[in-house]
């Protein structure tokens, strides 16, 4: 996952739901020095009996916000969705000559 262009990641999940696996895997994809580099990572754990679906909120450097419902997505699909915009930003950055 391209995490260079993310400024904020909010994950909410119930660890006891088998569908929250992708939510937990998203957290593992964030590099270890991301927080030091200014990314805000917030993970909220739901109680065991809550039926609320796992969700992911991402903010990009250009201000775009993305909300994903992780309950029905596999981790590859989540990465695909997030990377689609990140690649766009990477391309713009490259064209701007930085």
């Amino acid at each position: 996952m391209i995490t260079r262009f993310l400024t904020e990641v909010r994950v909410k999940f119930n660890p006891f739901s088998p569908r929250s696996k992708s939510a937990r895997l998203v957290l593992t994809l964030i590099p270890s020095n991301a927080r030091a580099d200014g990314m805000m990572v917030e993970s909220k754990m739901l109680p065991r009996d809550s039926k609320e679906p796992a969700s992911l909120g991402v903010k990009f450097k250009d201000g775009k916000e993305m909300k994903l419902d992780l309950d029905k997505m596999r981790i590859t699909e989540v990465v695909e969705e997030v990377d689609r915009h990140s690649r766009l930003l990477a391309r713009q950055e490259e064209l701007a000559g930085n």
Partner: peptide
């Protein structure tokens, strides 16, 4: 505990 046992 099955759903918990995944990932690192």
């Amino acid at each position: 505990l099955d759903p918990l046992l995944s990932g690192p």
